[in-house]
Amino acid sequence: MKVRGNRGRKNAEEQPQGTGPGTPDAGHGPAVELRGVRRQYGRGNAVVHALAGVDLALPRGTFTAVMGPSGSGKSTFLQCAAGLDRPTSGSVRLGGTEITGLSENRLTELRRSRLGFVFQAFNLLPSLTVEQNVLLPLRLAGKRQDRRRAATVLAQVGLADKARRRPGELSGGQQQRVAVARALVTNPDVIFADEPTGALDTGTAAEVLGLLRHAVDGLGATVVMVTHDPAAAAWADRVLFLADGTFADGLERGTPEQIAARMTALTARTGAMAGAAA
């Protein structure tokens, strides 16, 4: 996969902000902010500190990749940042909204209207058409089914002619493109992507990553992606590395080789620390 040196970024003030309905301070402050976030599972001697005091602020209109060894807390970070799981302590803000204390109904409403999600498994409904899958977030939020909006985002992902197809009639790469279109349809504050290329071949993965990159550069979206793949992470503006529930390091616009080397060093370091503590 070739990583572009000049990705055509606009200045933050030139980009349209991906602000959903009800954003209190649209265009101001970080898109994602975690302060003192801890998440633990179990009790007593069996307690696991999945997140051990995370402090992080991600600017709007940026693409951030999160990497780390197995068990480092990547999935827990994504779930807490996206309001899919509640931290044991600390606070999470999305687009200026403090979400930690929101009710489940309010959290569900926020996720549907202001966040987009792309998962490794696509999560498309096989009985619905491509267009219906893309419009599902609007339907679940009780909003008007805007077919013109669906046509727009499908055109952006190169599937303008597939609206009437079912997911089973598409390739894996095309299904993931539908998932990206679904994530874009509400013009979300943040798109959270969890291993979005894990089930794709290298060429198709590059196409999907290019769409996420365009969502940032061309649409002003904010993308937060968890990945194990250094080549995927190289598409991001910044790569953050998690180890033992905390962010250990970061790398600005690294090449796949630089990112892989940093991951190897981090894994070796955390493995040595675990061995010393055993």
Rank of each mutant, 00 (worst) to 15 (best):
A243E: 11
A272E: 14
A12N: 01
A206E: 15
P16Q: 10
T204L: 01
A193M: 07
A179S: 15
A276L: 14
L124Q: 09
G22M: 11
R86H: 05
T255C: 11
N123Y: 15
A155R: 11
A65G: 06
G18Y: 06
T129I: 13
P196I: 11
G101E: 09
R111M: 12
S127R: 14
R144G: 01
Q174W: 09
A82K: 00
T88A: 00
R182L: 12
R9Q: 07
D237R: 08
V185F: 00
A155V: 00
H49V: 06
L34M: 10
P167N: 12
A277L: 14
Q17Y: 04
P24V: 04
Q156Y: 08
D249I: 10
V190T: 02
S103K: 05
G53W: 06
R269M: 09
T222S: 06
D244I: 07
L140T: 04
G271Q: 13
A260G: 15
S89D: 07
G245T: 10
R39N: 05
E104F: 01
K74C: 05
E104A: 15
T267S: 15
R60S: 03
R238C: 04
A268Y: 01
G36L: 04
R144K: 14
L140N: 02
T88L: 05
L212R: 05
V48S: 08
A121L: 08
L266M: 09
A193E: 02
A163M: 12
V92Y: 05
A261G: 06
A272G: 04
E252H: 11
F122A: 10
E252L: 14
L251M: 13
T64P: 01
G271Y: 05
G172T: 10
S72H: 03
Q79C: 07
G172K: 05
R114M: 09
Q120M: 12
L242H: 04
Q176M: 10
V48F: 03
V134D: 01
M225I: 09
K74M: 08
N187W: 13
T97S: 12
G8H: 02
R166W: 03
G275I: 00
I99Y: 03
G95H: 01
A163H: 10
R262I: 12
T246H: 07
R166A: 14
C80Q: 01
R111Y: 13
F241C: 07
R39F: 10
G271N: 13
D237W: 03
G210S: 14
G68Q: 05
P59E: 03
R38P: 00
F63E: 02
V239L: 07
T264R: 14
A183P: 09
V32L: 09
A155Q: 13
P196E: 10
T108G: 08
D244L: 13
R60Y: 01
V216C: 11
N45R: 15
R4L: 15
Q176I: 12
G29S: 06
G198I: 13
E104K: 08
L34I: 06
L135S: 02
L84K: 03
G101V: 04
V32Q: 02
Q15V: 11
R144H: 15
D217T: 15
V239W: 00
A233G: 07
G220D: 07
K2T: 14
Y41E: 03
L34D: 01
A205R: 11
T204H: 05
P16D: 06
E104Q: 11
L251D: 09
L170D: 10
L107W: 00
T64Y: 08
